[in-house]
Amino acid sequence: MTRRWRPSLWFVLGGAMGGTLGLSLIGLVIFRYLGPVIGFGEAAILLGAAIGILTGALWLILVRLLQRPVTGLAAYAAAVRAAPDAATPEPAHFGTRELHRMAVNVIDMAGTLADREATIRSFTDHVTHELKTPVTAIRAATELLEDDPALSPGNRALVGQIAGAGEQMQRQLAALRELAAAREVPLGGGGRLADLLPSLGADHPGLQVTAGGAERPLPLSPDVLGIVLRHMADNAAAHGARALRLTADAEGLTIADDGKGISPGNRAHVFEPFFTTRRESGGTGMGLYIVARLLKAQGAEIAIAPTPSGTTFRITFPG
């Protein structure tokens, strides 16, 4: 950013109001004295042209000092949001002092968020990479111990618990990698239920998946929509559902199943990380959290909708 003199916002607004009022008053005075000399019709045309030119110059000043910096900053923010890792050029014009300070803060905030995102991604990659080897070693060791015919029943039960803990760690690491990948999914739209129903049914043969409004384009990319629906189908199947109904409309997407439902005490916690009622059967508590975070990154929201039986989720898209 280049250092230059920048007028204050109050000076620009006050000058615009003062200039408009001054042009009107000066025009009346000049018209009063110029009319008898050159004729009132000619004086009106001359003053109208002069006031129009001066008003146009004032408009250009306001566009340069107010409208162009605001639209440039908005375009910069939109470009950073669409491609956080890309080198987005900073706005070229900053207008008044107040707009300059706001632009500096927005640019600094974008850089801070990008650095934080890179740190989280690097830490996630490091943790998952470092833990992958010991978890694999635990799994291999338990498999060798389980094949030992001399292992006592008590020790065999202990080895089974160790194996289960190793599998749980693998699932948590997979969920962590998926969460990190979900944060990097690009924004976009055009995803349709019709394009994802075949793979969703094939991945969940125990679920009867049906859809309403399947051809309606949704404001989510196919990748994002696929991740969301897969997690929702996994969650429904894990809670005993046999049927899953997807309904897309102009305001959002409804996902309803006929499973055992969610107890009132658990409703406030289902979108929290690592919250699960299936810990003993391998639940990681990350599925709905990933869905909620992914949708939030797209500007959408998910909530539990009232239903007499089963579970219904409602996804609302930004207007």
Rank of each mutant, 00 (worst) to 15 (best):
A214R: 06
H204R: 07
L197F: 06
I53G: 10
L60I: 09
I26Y: 11
P89R: 10
L131V: 11
A137Q: 15
E98T: 04
G299R: 04
L218P: 03
R314A: 15
G56F: 14
F94K: 05
V63M: 12
E130R: 13
P7A: 03
D223P: 08
G240M: 11
A303G: 13
G252T: 00
I120S: 09
L187S: 02
G56K: 01
Y76F: 13
D125G: 07
E215C: 08
A118Q: 06
W59L: 07
G19A: 10
A163Y: 10
V80T: 00
T276V: 09
G14I: 05
A87R: 10
T307F: 13
A243G: 03
L158Q: 13
A182L: 05
G189H: 08
R192T: 13
L23Y: 02
A268T: 15
P69A: 00
A233P: 04
E98W: 01
A86V: 09
G95M: 03
A103W: 09
V70K: 03
A300M: 13
P222S: 10
L207E: 06
H231R: 11
Y76E: 14
G188Q: 00
N105W: 09
R4F: 10
G191V: 05
G226M: 04
P308V: 13
A305Y: 12
G39K: 09
I302D: 01
V135S: 11
P217G: 02
I38L: 13
R216H: 11
E280Y: 10
L34K: 03
V291I: 07
I120P: 00
L151N: 01
H269N: 15
A174H: 09
F313N: 03
R116I: 04
T312M: 15
T276W: 05
G95A: 01
G188S: 02
A50S: 09
G287E: 04
T88P: 01
R177W: 13
E143N: 14
G160A: 11
G19H: 03
P222C: 09
P36W: 10
Q168E: 15
Q170N: 15
A305M: 06
T112F: 12
P153I: 09
A16S: 14
F94Q: 06
R177C: 07
L23P: 01
E143I: 06
D258R: 08
L193R: 02
P36K: 06
S263C: 10
S221A: 12
N235I: 11
L294G: 00
G188D: 07
L9F: 07
D148P: 05
T112K: 07
T20K: 08
L220T: 05
I302N: 00
A300W: 01
F313V: 02
